[in-house]
Design a protein around this nucleic acid. Structure first.
Lengths: 336, 336
DNA sequence: CAGCGAGTTGTGACCGCTCACACGCCCTAT
DNA sequence: ATAGGGCGTGTGAGCGGTCACAACTCGCTG
């Protein structure tokens, strides 16, 4: 457990005080920009700090103040699309005077990871996961009073959350197909253990039922880029007819198009396809993909804003905010 | 600067000691798995810990030991492709008993970010950036003796680094074009302020010179997915002939293919294209892209292994490790 | 000229943990 | 009988900051 340390000791606040000929408290005051320091001593202390290359020890400060000014984003199981939100989150946290640090973990290690974050005295947590098997009560227990916001996902209970409205997004996509005249709509689902996969699937079914349409063939996928390919094989193997496919994300749509081509079916001439997520490559795919866009920068910013207000104004009400996705019509769908 | 805290106080090691009827040191021993505790007291203490929901305060431990068992990966300016490496890095860090935390920053804020990490007593730093304007001496100064490894990039000096061999990768790609009989090779470069953009460009030039070939038209790009499109317009506008294009990354290749199609040029029938990076979508593009693959999982693992050995065996020699990329031949290139 | 308040500085205690060391105990070797 | 050596446990000090409070120097007022 023990290793030899090798770094030469860094100057402490007391070293600076000694060098500048003031008390350590005065240095601390300068550090915290207290107004009650004469500008003479302030400049002197600042100069000494610079000369000695002084860096405040955050661990000591955290220990004394019980505040770390750190927010932690915990990503469970996947680096998927969400990573685009991280840069906005970092920026937003900065604006409020916090550092955002990101850790990745797995479902199994989640409790442990949260414990460590809590033990590290982070001021707030962002939980990024779509898994349906993560329950609100467990999160509340594990976080032990540290404010947190769940980004994406849906555990169905009253914890702070900011997410995209999957029902709305799916309805946009499917309604688009209906508007184009499609009545036989097949489906490649996402991972049903994920909230997004689950909701997109059930919303599709609901909407078809509302229109008294029989669902076309459906294959359960897992959001992975390779899956679309095999899923299409399975769809075709059913022998059922369909003129359009609702595919739960763009990644699977990419490989699905490929599979169709190999079977001599062209998109959108023979089959219309609508995807989900609007990856950056979707616009340049052949054909450019009709899909549903979710504004990741916005969700990142809002999540941090909400978290910070939970931290700094503890009476902030718990709510769940849903952001509306947007339909992007390109060339993978056509009227029949 | 001050806010009201609201959380009820967490139990400390002394609370546990009191409750279990032992001294705080004994609890500390249990915590650190010291062998010199009778199994009686150990189990009793462990039980009390669980009952009281005790979590060790990492800030206090860090302060006392000057060790945080945290590694910090700093990502400068981009979440590009590297994010695939982060999951392997997290796993590798775990295996060595460290937590990996990731922070994003910009070139301008880099010094500040490193200072904060150092002040947080992280045990090691990973710097992820390709920018050429980040100099080794500055990094050495900013990190103040905290071990660090640069992943990717190349500042040309003796700091610990693990990176992909851009020269080798580029030669594979260009040699492939030459082998197919191409002699008029155009180019869309990456961002020349980045090491990868710079090296890929110059390696292409060098190799063509070795074969006494005149470089085809060249347009400077920036690695962004939108750029390939306009770059192709510019290439065609030169009026020069070319049968193949070396494109500095797959993202630009995607949109480049599009632009060619709009001009009635088919890939690979009229134009061969070789990209770089092997994005996950590249295999399912139309046409599937010939490209150069870099093993991100491997680089992540090696980086952490190297960093940990720098931390735990300070006599570990400084070296620069280059990983060989691999040519992936698909359908965007053909013999002429 | 005593008294007061504002501005500036210093002192002690404490945050929660670990380290070095001392202590008591029982068992064994001389 | 005594010294020595584990083992298990407790005590004091310290890591590098912050907080609460005391104290000193002014200038101003009544």
């Amino acid at each position: 457990m023990k290793e030899t340390r090798h770094k030469r000791p860094r100057p402490t606040l007391r070293d600076v005080a000694h060098e500048a000929g003031v008390s350590y408290q005065t240095v601390s005051r300068v550090l915290n920009e207290s107004p009650n320091v004469s500008s003479d001593t302030r400049t002197r202390v600042l100069r000494v700090m610079r000369e000695m290359n002084y860096r405040p020890n955050r661990a000591a400060r955290t220990l004394a103040t019980q505040r770390s000014y750190t927010l932690e984003a915990i990503i469970v199981d996947s680096w998927n699309s969400e990573s685009a939100a991280l840069s906005s989150m970092t920026r937003a946290a900065h604006n409020f005077g916090y550092q955002l640090s990101i850790v990745a973990t797995t479902r199994d290690a989640l409790e442990h990871t949260i414990h460590i974050s809590v033990g590290r005295q982070v001021d707030g947590l962002v939980l990024i996961t779509q898994r349906r098997d993560i329950e609100a009560p467990a999160l509340l227990e594990w976080s032990e009073g540290v404010p947190f916001v769940q980004m994406t996902g849906d555990t169905g209970l009253d914890i702070p959350r900011v997410a995209f409205d999957q029902v709305h997004g799916t309805r946009l996509a499917v309604q688009h197909l209906l508007d184009l005249g499609h009545r036989q709509i097949a489906e490649i689902t996402g991972d049903m253990r994920m909230v997004d996969g689950y909701k997109r699937h059930h919303t599709l079914r609901d909407l078809l039922a509302e229109h008294h349409l029989v669902p076309g063939p459906s294959v359960e996928g897992d959001f992975d880029i390779n899956t679309g390919y095999s899923a299409v094989q399975q769809l075709l193997a059913t022998g059922e007819n369909f003129t359009a496919v609702f595919i739960a994300n763009d990644w699977m749509a990419f490989s699905a198009v490929h599979a169709f081509l190999e079977h001599g079916l062209r998109v959108p001439e023979d089959i219309s396809i609508v995807g989900f997520d609007d990856m950056r490559t979707s616009a340049f795919f052949t054909p450019p993909l009709t899909t549903v866009r979710q504004d990741l920068h916005k969700i990142g910013r809002l999540t941090i804003e909400y978290l910070v207000s939970l931290i700094e104004q503890p009476d902030t009400p718990v709510h769940q905010r849903l952001l509306a996705p947007e339909l992007i019509v390109r060339a993978s769908t056509r009227k029949i």
